[in-house]
């Protein structure tokens, strides 16, 4: 197990009285992209929130890039260089695009961060003074992605960035994710429901079923889609 990826061991979490995920273990090499799939309500978002410390960790451990994060509050996890993109309400709707970016960028020079944003989504630079809430759904998702890139962190946790997006935007996001990994070696954990997107960008996949890992494999294997669909299909 590498010392600079994501290591989650036996992690349990949930809400008062109800464990949603039970003893989940996951690991990635540095620069690896892992897609976590599963139907709604199977604990995917809970997993990410528990890793960030936004939900109580009820046992197990979490390490990012070799640094212990199990007992850290969310802001301290973020300061380890872990970017988190929540599924809902992940932008400050009443703040401008620029303010949304500035809030996330604390170490690096803001100009450097903006250059990173420009490379991925140049249109955002024209919209810096616009309120984030006035962007379209797809543009908001791109701003979210841009914000994670602007931070320049080592690890990214992304919760269903493709939800409700049109195919062209999804393609664009996939390109940006692959580019970021190639240039910065960012380790990523993508929670996804969009199977083609997940298999296109990830190196490996895992299926979460009722709070437990039901299956894992490499994205390149020919039967990957079939194995995942067995867990997802109607």
């Amino acid at each position: 197990m590498s010392a600079s990826g994501i290591e989650v061991q036996q992690l349990s979490s949930g809400y008062a009285g109800a464990k949603v995920i039970r003893e989940v273990s996951l690991a990635t090499a540095p620069g690896e992209i892992l897609a976590v799939l599963g139907k709604n309500g199977m604990g995917k978002s809970t997993l990410l929130k528990a890793m960030m410390g936004l939900l109580p960790r009820m046992g197990g451990s979490v390490r990012f890039a070799g640094r212990e994060a199990t007992r850290l509050p969310p802001y301290a996890v973020a300061r380890l260089g872990v970017g988190y993109v929540a599924q809902e309400k992940a932008l400050f709707q009443d703040l401008t695009v620029e303010e949304n970016l500035r809030l996330a960028v604390r170490r690096t020079d803001f100009e450097v961060a903006l250059a990173e944003v420009e490379r991925a989504f140049p249109f955002l630079l024209q919209r810096l003074k616009q309120r984030a809430g006035t962007l379209s759904g797809g543009e908001q998702k791109m701003l979210l992605m841009a914000r994670s890139l602007a931070v320049g962190g080592k690890v990214l946790l992304i919760d269903e960035i493709t939800e409700g997006l049109q195919p062209s935007v999804i393609d664009r996001l996939a390109g940006v994710i692959r580019d970021a990994r190639a240039r910065h070696g960012t380790t990523m954990l993508l929670v996804e429901q969009h199977l083609p997107f997940a298999l296109a960008v990830a190196d490996r996949w895992a299926v979460l079923d009722r709070g437990e890992i039901a299956d894992t494999g490499a994205a390149g294997e020919p039967d990957a889609a079939a194995r995942i669909l067995r867990h997802l299909s109607v």
Partner: peptide
């Protein structure tokens, strides 16, 4: 910066914490 962080905490504390703000 402090004011920006304060406004962020007012609007959505969880999100602010997830971005590294010590609320």
């Amino acid at each position: 910066r402090l004011g920006l962080e304060t406004r962020a905490v007012i609007m959505n504390e969880d999100l602010a914490r997830g971005l590294g703000i010590n609320s």
